[in-house]
């Protein structure tokens, strides 16, 4: 059974249709890039999969079942904007997560904090934006999930930190789990992707295996994307 399936999925806000007839299958054990320009529906799709918005029509199935409480247990989601209480220390945030999620591995979280040189006693408010993003990612990757969904994980960080973040993603997803990374910073992530999904104006334009696509077009994913969506 497929890990995630979107069937004839539509989403409108009032008159405005944001997602049009999305059909998508995400297999197990893959890293998938959800690639599109700003405002093309990436985050809306991700929020629908996380049951944070209501579907206008169509279906989303996780392990063959409609999304809901059960799917939230097995999806670890990194939203675009942080929702953490910045008055809390990292340590307290970890305790909070450990209480909230059965599959949260505190030991792993502390190990990752140490690897990335972060201080557990520090309050989030005292940290730089890049550090906060690292903490957020550590929390997400410390859950033993089936599906990790990362919405713009490289948003506000410098290139060196980007490498750190990619390594953290690469080395910390469970065997058999899949990772969806939504981003417009394609050249930074493309080396770790198995599959790519191009999304534009609320529609899926292309799905392909990354290396196959490079072979076919004789170019990088970034280059292919630029050609396709030349303004």
């Amino acid at each position: 059974m497929e890990l995630l399936q979107c069937i004839d999925l539509n989403k409108s806000f009032g008159e405005k249709q944001i997602l049009k007839n999305i059909n998508l299958t995400i297999p197990r054990g893959k890293i998938i890039g959800l690639l599109g320009k700003n405002g093309t529906g990436k985050s809306t799709l991700i929020k629908l999969i996380n049951d944070l918005l209501t579907i206008s029509s169509g279906q989303i199935l996780i392990n063959g079942k409609p999304i809901g409480v059960e799917s939230k247990k097995i999806i670890s989601y990194l939203p675009e904007r942080t929702y953490l209480d910045k008055g809390m220390t990292v340590e307290k945030t970890i305790k909070y997560f450990a209480n909230f999620y059965e599959n949260f591995d505190s030991e792993k979280a502390y190990k990752l904090l140490e690897d990335l040189g972060l201080d557990a006693n520090q309050k989030l408010a005292k940290m730089s934006k890049g550090m906060q993003e690292k903490v957020q990612l550590i929390l997400v990757m410390s859950r033993k999930a089936d599906l990790y969904i990362l919405d713009e994980p490289l948003g506000g960080v410098d290139p060196a930190t980007r490498d750190y973040i990619l390594d953290t993603i690469l080395t910390n997803f469970n065997d058999g789990a899949s990772v969806i990374i939504s981003t417009h910073l394609i050249s930074d992530v493309e080396r770790i992707l198995d599959n790519v999904i191009f999304i534009d104006k609320g529609q899926i334009i292309l799905t392909a295996e990354a290396d196959e696509l490079r072979n076919r077009e004789d170019a990088s994913i970034d280059e292919i994307f630029r050609r396709m969506f030349k303004c």
Binding site: E190, R191, A210, D211, E212, R214, N215, E223
Partner: peptide, 10 residues
């Protein structure tokens, strides 16, 4: 360092 223009596995 990989060249993103060529399939990584190759």
């Amino acid at each position: 360092d990989f060249d993103n223009n060529i399939p990584i596995y190759l």
